[in-house]
């Protein structure tokens, strides 16, 4: 790919960098406890939590496993577990 003059770039390429490889612990959600309040979606520094059809989804391509979602979940529905790689 030719260089873009002035060290400029269009959006979209950050996703080339799969930060999920940094992860040691991964979040697991207990949907029995989850109230879909959206706290985890809002605060995730990686924009890697979303909700679809009443389920909370973690994008493990990008989740760094920081655990802020688990700690801030008002219903304690998220736990961080050691990931087998």
């Amino acid at each position: 790919m030719a260089l873009r003059i002035g060290c400029a770039a269009e959006p979209g390429r950050a996703q080339n960098n799969k930060t999920g490889s940094w992860r040691v612990f991964m979040p697991v959600v207990d949907m029995e406890k989850c109230t879909l309040c959206g706290t985890c979606i809002l605060i995730c520094p990686e924009t890697s939590v979303s909700e679809k059809d009443g389920n909370i989804l973690f994008d493990l391509d990008f989740c760094k496993g920081c655990g802020v979602c688990a700690r801030e979940c008002p219903g304690d529905a998220i736990t961080m577990i050691q990931e087998e790689k």
Partner: peptide, 20 residues
């Protein structure tokens, strides 16, 4: 709240306040 204009894949430390 649903508007996402900051992409994933950035290189901040895990749990970064500025990234949030």
């Amino acid at each position: 709240k649903s508007l996402e204009l900051f992409d994933c894949g950035h290189r901040a430390c895990g749990g970064c306040g500025p990234a949030m």
